[in-house]
């Protein structure tokens, strides 16, 4: 082989290798893009960074899994719909116990679980939503209350709001209501819902929460901020009620009873 053919051979080989590697890279990139979507029932441990950051930060060591006292975390295996080697839990099969000292975060060597989170009540793994008003026993007029009782942040993250039971006409419905400013998404409510399929479910934040337009202003808040009405003189409120209804101050709508 003379110098020029061997040089040509070298260039061909190098080009072939570059193409092969490039193809492998594109294939892997495409695969990773679809393989790293987190299914809505899988949740990261407390303090996990945003999913995009988490997948660059977590080195798939499983230390958080090992140090979780109730052992609710799993390390995703190939074939499961969670990024391979990353920790997750499914609320219905094992909710986060909201350990006070956050052993999972302490164990994490990389900070994929953010070490700045020291108060477990500040964790936001997801948000519980009472998704099915038609099967929830409390909505049916019973006093199940289980989701409310098990909540580690009872009366803050979840409350029971009484309202009239129209069906019986003489009972109260105690509606479980979750409050986003306190719920950590631990999933204890979902895990313990007594139904065959839970009526209350933890959802990933983006699925659970709406978002106001950034230009929206809440009149009453603006009023509070300004220390008085922003419209002067304040306009007197007028009711546009259907016939047969009237407004009773402090109580709300009432049916007109013929005097």
């Amino acid at each position: 082989m003379n110098a020029s053919t061997s040089r040509r051979q070298f260039i061909v080989d190098a080009a072939r290798m570059a193409c092969g590697v490039g193809m492998a890279g594109l294939g892997l990139g495409a695969y990773v893009k679809q393989a790293q979507a987190l299914p809505p029932v899988a949740f990261r441990p407390p303090g996990a960074r945003s999913e995009q950051d988490f997948l660059g930060a977590c080195i798939r060591c499983g230390l958080c899994v090992r140090d979780c006292p109730p052992q609710i975390l799993g390390l995703a295996q190939p074939g499961q719909p969670v990024a391979t080697g990353t920790p997750y839990f499914v609320a219905r099969s094992g909710a986060c116990e909201m350990c006070e000292n956050l052993p999972c975060i302490k164990a994490c060597p990389t900070g994929a679980l953010d070490h700045r989170l020291t108060d477990v009540a500040q964790a936001r793994m997801g948000l519980a939503v009472l998704v099915d008003h038609e099967t929830c026993l409390n909505f049916l007029g019973l006093r199940c209350d289980v989701c409310y009782r098990v909540c580690p942040l009872i009366d803050k993250a979840i409350t029971l709001e009484p309202r009239h039971n129209e069906r019986t006409g003489r009972h109260t419905i105690f509606e479980p209501v979750v409050h986003a400013d306190a719920c950590t998404g631990c999933g204890k409510c979902e895990a313990s819902c007594v139904l065959e399929v839970a009526a209350i479910k933890v959802l990933p934040m983006p699925l659970a929460k709406g978002e106001l337009g950034s230009h929206y202003r809440l009149g009453w808040k603006e009023k509070e901020k300004a220390g008085g009405s922003l419209v002067a003189p304040e306009i007197e409120h007028r009711y546009q009620l259907p016939e047969g209804l009237r407004y009773e101050a402090g109580k709300g709508l009432a049916t007109e009873t013929p005097q």
Partner: peptide, 29 residues
């Protein structure tokens, strides 16, 4: 790929860690 995707992409398929992790945390596929 790590730079471009912001994710540790290789760990999705790395046979070395798939085997090693699988032995202690469950094999799956």
């Amino acid at each position: 790929l790590a730079l471009a995707t912001g994710s540790i992409a290789w760990e999705f398929v790395n046979p070395v860690s798939l085997l090693h992790r699988g032995l202690f945390f469950g094999f799956g596929l």
